[in-house]
Design a protein around this nucleic acid. Structure first.
Lengths: 140, 140
DNA sequence: ATATGTGCAAAGGGTTTGCAGATAT
DNA sequence: ATATCTGCAAACCCTTTGCACATAT
């Protein structure tokens, strides 16, 4: 549970209640789509507006506080920006799990980037498959 | 330039003119969004319907002929399905380039997958940055 | 001949925008 | 006190759907 107020102010944003509960919802589950955020928040704060969630997600991305995670066949999810990691994406439940980069992954990609004279900004590695929970569920 | 008619029939689809020019447009550039496909095709075939393009892209994905390439901050692009590869995505022009997997990338990821008991279906590796052409253009 | 596919227009969702009132600083 | 933010409603996409006509097999 981060100090969202400080985080927001450091980016020149006002620390509003709505922003903090959006961030809290995302951090709580790790990865959430716009609609998921709205569904969750409506239960506790029925007056929250979908437009506000959209505006904040856009703004928080521009400030680098949130990162978009685009997913094949689904709506993008959003996560709190953090050091690079791999996503395991379940094609059944849509769940996303973070995992650290394997140690040698840098060296593996470096020759390709150098050869292409590509100014790398960000790596995005996603492994799609069926998570352990969904495998168990489908066996029973 | 593949034999699209055979490809389509092998999946139980009729080899219509519209399907073939959609495939041709995608293969020609490598990666195209729905709107890009429509823009390109309208010039030569003004009567082509956007609805037809949508229906076909959905169907061609279901048959495994096309693969969706989701991209941060943009609409998804589509490519002809082929063996796994890495995407270099330019954050300025939105261009996507394919590159072969570096040889060791399998081994690097394997321990993670085993540990998580994750039934891997597909890897999706995207490197975001600025392509060489855009770098040159911004220097001038 | 017939199942499938296309184009059109309408419907359906998701996302953005403008503005008046509310809030954080 | 004031710049910023929120919620609402409307507008504005993008995408899907239903249906009559056309086409591939």
């Amino acid at each position: 549970m981060s100090d969202y107020a400080t985080l927001l102010k450091a980016s020149g944003l006002k620390a509003t209640f709505q922003r903090m509960i959006v961030l809290e919802t995302i951090e709580c589950d790790g990865h959430r789509s716009v609609e998921e955020i709205h569904e969750v928040l409506k239960e506790s704060y029925p007056s929250i507006s979908l437009a506000t969630i959209y505006k904040n997600i856009t703004m928080l991305q521009e400030k680098g506080i949130l990162t978009e995670v685009p997913i094949v066949g689904r709506k993008s999810k959003y996560e709190l920006s953090k050091s690079e990691h791999i996503h395991l994406v379940c094609t059944l439940c849509g769940g996303v799990e973070d995992h650290p980069y394997p140690p040698q992954s840098d060296e593996v990609l470096r020759p390709l980037i150098a050869k292409e004279q590509f100014a790398l900004q960000k790596r995005d590695i996603n492994l799609y498959g069926i998570c352990h929970l969904c495998q168990v569920a489908s066996t029973s």
